[in-house]
Design a protein around this nucleic acid. Structure first.
Lengths: 340, 340
DNA sequence: GACTGGCACTCGCTACAGTCGAGTGCCAGT
DNA sequence: ACTGGCACTCGACTGTAGCGAGTGCCAGTC
C-alpha cells in the first residue's frame, strides 16, 4: 500500500521513459538513465510492488514495464509539475492569435494552434449560448411571410434562423416586432430567456400575436433547445503518429467518436473554472475513447467561463507539457475575448 | 491496342470482383463467377494484354490481377452504367433531408447523409459567396466605435464581421450607412461588388466618408477575398474500413489533406453544370491523395450551381453506386434550396 | 487463327524449429 | 535493506520446408 519515495521515483522514471521512447522500460535501462542510486535488482523489487498495486504492467513476460492508466493518474496527480512554456511556444501562441478578426476566426486559429503545439487532436467549443447573453436581435424580411432572425450574443456568436410566418406581415409590423423582442430580451442570459419569451407572446398586441407566437417558438428552438453548441476540430492527422501502437491498432473508434458532437461536448464542455481536467484512458465514459486521454479546460474573458477547449491523444502522452499548453492557450484566448 | 469486347468484359469483371472482395483476382475465379464462355487459359492471355496496356497489374508474381488507375478510368468511362438507386436509398435521402430548418442544417444533414450512404468521406461546400447575391446587409451597433456587419445572401448564407470604426459614430449615421449600402448592393452578385463598393465610398457624404471607408474595406475583405468558402466534412471514420489495405497502409496523408480547406475546395469546388466529375488516384493533383478517388458534382436550385459536393474514398470503390448516390443527393439538395 | 488443356515455374504465406537476448523473480549473502 | 548472481521465460528473429494460387508458355484441337 505505502509507496515510499523511491518507488514513486521509479514510477515517474518509467512514465517519462515510456512516453519518450514508446517502448516498455526495463530495470537496467532505468538505473542507467536516471540517478536512482540503487541497483537494477532493487528497482526490480520496487517494480514488482508497483505492478501488484496496479500502476504498471508487463505487456508480456520478459518485456519491460508499461504504465497503466492508474499509473498515469498517479503520475499526473502527484509526480509531475506543470512544465513552463518555452519562449518559442509563447511567441507561437501570440503570433498565431493576433490578427483574428472574427469569432469564427479566433476559434479556427485556436484549434489549429492547439493541434500544432500539442501535436494531438484539438477541440474547441464555441462560446456556449447558454452562457452568453443577448446583445441584439435582428429581423430581416425575406418575403412577406418569411423573416430571417439573427441573434448576436455578447460573446460574439451570431446565430440565424428562418422564420416561416403563418400569415403575411406588413413591414411596419416587423419593425414593431423587432423593437419588442429587443426591448425585452437584450441583456438577458440565454438560459433565462424562456419565461421572457413567453411574456412577450402574452403581452403582445393582437395584430402581432400570430407572428410573435411563431417567432417565439423559433427563438426557443434555436437558442435554447437546438444544436446550440458548436465545435471546431483539428489535427486528426496527429492520431497517426506513433504508428499503430497507440490506440491498439485501430483509429476507427476514435474517429467515430470525434464525429459525434455530443461526445466532444461531453469531453470538453463541462469545464469548471480554472481547473484543467485530465481524463486518462478508462476514466473516460465514452467506450470508444478508452484508449485515449483528454486534457481540457474552460476559457472565457476574465474569470468567467464561456466554453471549453482541449486536446485528445494517446494515454501515452506528455501530460505536463500538454497541460501547460492547453492552459496557456485558454488564457490567451480569454484575453483575446476580453478585448472584444 | 485494340481491345475487343471480351477483353473489356474481362477488365470489367476484374474491377467488379476486386472491388467486391478486395483481393487480387485470378483467371480461374474469374471464369467461375462470370459467364465469359471461355477457359481460364484464354482469360490469362487477355489479362496479359490488359497488363501490357497498363489497365491491370500484378502485385507480385503468382498473385491475381488488380486494376490500375488507368483500368478504373476505362471502367468508369466505358464499362459501367450508373446504378439506379434502390428505393430504400431514395427513402433515406428524403427522410434525412426533410425537416432541415436552416442552411447550416441542410449542409450538416447532407454531409452526414452522403457519408452514410456511400460509406466514405463526404465533403459539402456551402453555397459559394461568389455565386450568391446580396439579399440584405445589416449594421448593428455594438458600441460607438464598433459595428457588427451581417450579410444575408440569397442562398441562405449569413456572414458576419466586426467593423472597427476610426471614430465614434452617432446612431442616425448608422441608419444612413445601412440604407446606403443596402440601396447600392442588394441584388448584386458578390463577385461584382468591388466597383459598387468603391462607388459607395466615392459618393458618400462627407460626414459618412470615414466610416464608409472602413466599412468598405471590411466588406471587400470578408465577402470577396477572405475565407469566403466554407466546407463541411463527415465520415472520416470510413477511411478505416478495408483495414489498412487501401491507402497503402497510412491514413496520414489523407487526413492531412482533409484538414486543408484549400485542398477540399479544389476537389469539389470546381463543379461544372450537371457533370459528375470522377478523379481516380493519380489523376488527382494533390500528392497526398494519390491513393484516393474523388467523385464530385455541383448542386444548386434549378439549373444553376451554387456549390459542390462529393465523396472521397479508396481507388478501389464502387464507382457506379457512388456516382449514382452523389448525383441523387445533389439533386435533392438542389430541390430543397429551390424551395427556400 | 482462336481457343484450350497441360505443365513447369514463381513466390507469397504458413508452420516449425532453433537461437538470441532482454528482462524478470528469487535467493543467499553482506 | 540492498545487492550480485543465477535460472527461467518468452518475444523477436532466422532459416527451412511445404503448400497452393496463379501465371506463362506450348503443343494440340476445332
Amino acid at each position: 500500500m505505502g509507496l515510499d519515495d523511491r518507488k514513486l521515483a521509479v514510477l515517474r522514471a518509467i512514465v517519462e521513459d515510456y512516453v519518450a521512447t514508446q517502448e516498455p522500460v526495463g530495470s537496467k535501462a532505468l538505473v542507467e538513465r536516471h540517478q536512482l542510486g540503487v541497483s537494477p535488482a532493487t528497482v526490480r523489487n520496487d517494480m514488482a510492488v508497483l505492478e501488484e498495486e496496479g500502476y504498471i504492467r508487463q505487456p508480456h513476460t520478459s518485456a519491460g514495464r508499461v504504465p497503466t492508466d492508474r499509473g498515469y493518474r498517479l503520475f499526473v496527480d502527484r509526480l509531475s509539475r506543470v512544465k513552463p512554456l518555452s519562449p518559442a511556444e509563447r511567441r507561437a501562441i501570440e503570433r498565431f492569435l493576433v490578427g483574428a478578426v472574427d469569432l469564427d476566426d479566433v476559434v479556427h486559429r485556436t484549434v489549429r494552434l492547439l493541434a500544432q503545439l500539442t501535436r494531438q487532436v484539438a477541440v474547441v467549443q464555441y462560446p456556449s449560448l447558454a452562457r452568453s447573453s443577448v446583445r441584439h436581435l435582428e429581423l430581416v424580411p425575406i418575403s412577406t411571410t418569411r423573416l430571417m432572425l439573427v441573434m448576436i450574443a455578447d460573446t460574439g456568436r451570431v446565430e440565424q434562423r428562418l422564420v416561416e410566418l403563418p400569415a403575411p406581415i406588413p413591414a411596419d409590423h416587423v419593425i414593431d416586432l423587432r423593437r419588442l423582442v429587443n426591448e425585452k430580451l437584450v441583456g438577458s442570459r440565454l438560459s433565462e430567456t424562456p419565461p421572457l419569451v413567453q411574456a412577450l407572446v402574452d403581452e403582445s398586441a393582437p395584430h402581432l400575436r400570430g407572428a410573435m407566437t411563431t417567432l417565439s417558438t423559433v427563438l426557443l428552438e434555436t437558442l435554447v433547445e437546438r444544436h446550440e453548441e458548436r465545435i471546431a476540430l483539428a489535427g486528426t492527422a496527429n492520431l497517426t503518429r506513433g504508428g499503430l501502437l497507440d490506440f491498439q491498432g485501430s483509429l476507427r473508434p476514435i474517429l467515430e467518436a470525434l464525429e459525434e458532437e455530443v461526445v466532444l461536448l461531453k469531453l470538453i464542455g463541462e469545464a469548471e473554472p480554472s481547473t484543467t481536467r485530465v481524463l486518462i484512458g478508462d476514466e473516460n465514459e465514452v467506450d470508444n475513447l478508452r484508449a485515449a486521454s483528454v486534457v481540457s479546460t474552460g476559457y472565457g474573458p476574465g474569470a468567467t467561463i464561456v466554453g471549453g477547449l482541449g486536446v485528445l491523444g494517446p494515454t501515452r502522452m506528455d501530460y505536463p507539457g500538454t497541460i501547460a499548453t492547453v492552459r496557456a492557450v485558454a488564457r490567451y484566448v480569454g484575453e483575446l475575448l476580453a478585448q472584444n
